[in-house]
Nucleic acid binder design. Structure first.
Lengths: 153, 153
DNA sequence: CTATATTGGTGCGATATCGTACTAAATAGG
DNA sequence: CCTATTTAGTACGATATCGCACCAATATAG
């Protein structure tokens, strides 16, 4: 049992939410002008998973509504960090390609975060991070599954 | 080292961010009409920590800009869940009081979440939750401190 | 005291998030 | 084929988030 007679899950998600908020704020502080975390996340995803995906595929990958992804991609395109081309296989659809500027931006953003990680390591060891990561991944997978099967299909 | 040659902190915060997003979405799904997580969080805080705090104190407790807190409180007041009274000690300021409806709302929201926790427990034990919670708390405290001392004051 | 600086709160504008509704293209059923 | 359904993307509106600028009240300096 956590505090206040409320089960530990409540405290757990509360703590996770606070960390996410603080980490996001710290990260966005180092991003230029109007750029936010999703802008970076999409660029990072395009490099890690691969170019040329459709907006809908990206929306699903991020578990976000497709209208939000349209908006995020518009911001990236406006800044010349991605390029939208028609999908040769489907005239309704588009493909998202990262530009050279997009790659450069992503890489320098990652380099920037490294500077934040240094001070963290003093008080929260890399070992500790690697220790809890698998358990968090397991928790995420539980939530993912719960989302897929809302009422026990 | 995590995936892609990027250190584990990157993966850690990424995972935490995803969990926070999923958990928040799952929670807000069960909230009426236009209510969002901060509305609930403020009510919960007022009950746990105590009534009669100023908006600024709340903004600081949540590490959020004071303009955002003004907005959140306006939403709560519009719905009759909190009441704003003048601060007898400072004419610039106000005090936030939770109403009976606010207490009732908070309690029934918590009861609702319990239904979500049931299915989670099958795949992610309460023991596991209690196991990683202290480490997450430590991580949050590191971030809190890093925020207080931006450049080593 | 009085002038200056600080503090608590809000108005406003820019952008983000996301649900609803719509269009056009693709697919399925017959 | 032709129609009905599904799918990909977007326009639009409601709200959220938050920086900036402002006002009023308070605290500080001299």
């Amino acid at each position: 049992m956590g505090d206040d007679g409320v089960p530990s899950y409540f405290s757990l998600f509360n703590e996770i939410g606070i960390i996410a908020q603080l980490a996001r704020a710290a990260f966005e502080e180092r991003l230029p002008d109007g750029m936010v975390l999703p802008h970076f996340s999409v660029l990072n995803h395009l490099i890690r998973v691969g170019d040329g995906q459709t907006p809908l595929a990206l929306a699903r990958a991020f578990q976000t509504p497709k209208t939000s992804m349209t908006h995020t991609l518009a911001g990236l395109e406006k800044r010349g960090l991605v390029e939208m081309r028609p999908n040769p296989d489907d005239a309704r659809s588009k493909c998202v390609w990262i530009t050279a500027a997009g790659r450069e931006f992503r890489n320098s953003a990652i380099a920037d975060i490294m500077n934040v990680f240094g001070p963290i390591e003093e008080a929260f060891s890399k070992d500790c991070a690697e220790h809890i990561l698998p358990e968090l991944t397991a928790l995420r997978q539980v939530l993912d599954k719960a989302r897929d099967e809302p009422q026990g299909r």
